[in-house]
């Protein structure tokens, strides 16, 4: 880490994002510091994925500034410092590929000579697979894995660049219990190494105990930014009623009744 790293990995100031001319994210401030684990929560349509996609440069900003490691995102070039897991259920494409091949493609941001993989890139890919508990599956086709395992392959791909910041769009959606526990271990390890983790989720499950901060969006605005315990009851996006949770008065208290599903 050098002096230039004083800037936080993610710094969003007054960010507004429009989709189809309609503001989906409005004036959001959000910072993810070095070594911090931040969860972005909210109901479906609250704008959390949109915000994350804009933060990594996949969507244009309609207002405000987004910085990654101190550089405006549109001028950010240190892609090897950023690992990204898009929102998707599988890592399967039209042609078979092995778990190792997909993980290795995550080292592309580090390769300087026409994308040629060096021995160190292969080692990084295997290390990343090892961290998600799939090193022994490297030669298997991705299609032979369960949904949760495929999700872990995509996280390994993001980690293979040995990034300082891991950004994930719903990595836990539809993931089995075993994979959730593997991920919890993984994120705990990353944070203890001083790396940052920022994820979008509906529910945190076993990750709840790990997050430093929960940021809750509603209708594109931040309605909570602080400890997760104060956010309980809010982030459930499903339509099924939560008879027990809203009934806990202290849980909603100071931040208002932002738990009501839309």
């Amino acid at each position: 880490m050098t002096a230039a790293d004083a800037a936080p990995p993610v710094r969003l100031v007054d960010v507004t994002v429009q989709l189809g001319g309609r503001p989906v994210v409005r004036g959001v401030d959000l910072t993810v510091g070095a070594g911090e684990f931040v969860a972005l929560l909210g109901t479906n349509g609250s704008g959390k994925s949109t915000l994350m996609r804009a933060a990594v440069g996949l969507l244009p900003l309609a207002g405000g500034t987004a910085q990654l490691f101190g550089s405006p995102v549109d001028r950010f070039r240190a892609w090897e410092r950023l690992g990204y897991v898009p929102q998707r259920s599988t890592a399967v494409s039209g042609v078979p590929s092995t778990v190792g091949e997909v993980a290795l493609s995550g080292t592309l941001s580090r390769r300087r000579v026409v994308g040629l993989a060096r021995r160190d890139d292969r080692r990084a890919a295997m290390e990343a697979l090892d961290r998600v508990g799939l090193a022994d599956r490297a030669r298997d086709a991705v299609t032979e894995l369960s949904g949760g395992q495929q999700q872990r392959v995509m996280i390994a791909r993001a980690l293979a660049g040995r990034c300082d910041l891991l950004v994930m769009d719903e990595p836990t959606a539809g993931v089995d219990q075993e994979s959730q526990l593997v991920l919890a271990d993984l994120f705990r390890g990353l944070v203890s190494e001083g790396r940052s983790v920022w994820l979008v989720a509906h529910e945190l499950g076993p990750l709840a105990a790990l997050v430093d901060r929960a940021v809750v969006l509603r209708d594109g605005s931040v309605v909570h930014d602080g400890p997760y315990e104060h956010a309980i009851g809010a982030p459930h996006a499903h339509d099924h009623p939560h008879g027990d949770e809203p009934a806990r008065p202290g849980a909603i208290g100071t931040h208002g009744a932002w738990g009501s599903a839309t």
Binding site: R88, L108, G161
Partner: peptide, 14 residues
């Protein structure tokens, strides 16, 4: 391979 496998991830890899 990266572009055909996952366009969004490829973009965020630069």
């Amino acid at each position: 391979f990266a572009v055909c496998q996952d366009e969004e991830h490829a973009r965020v890899s630069g």
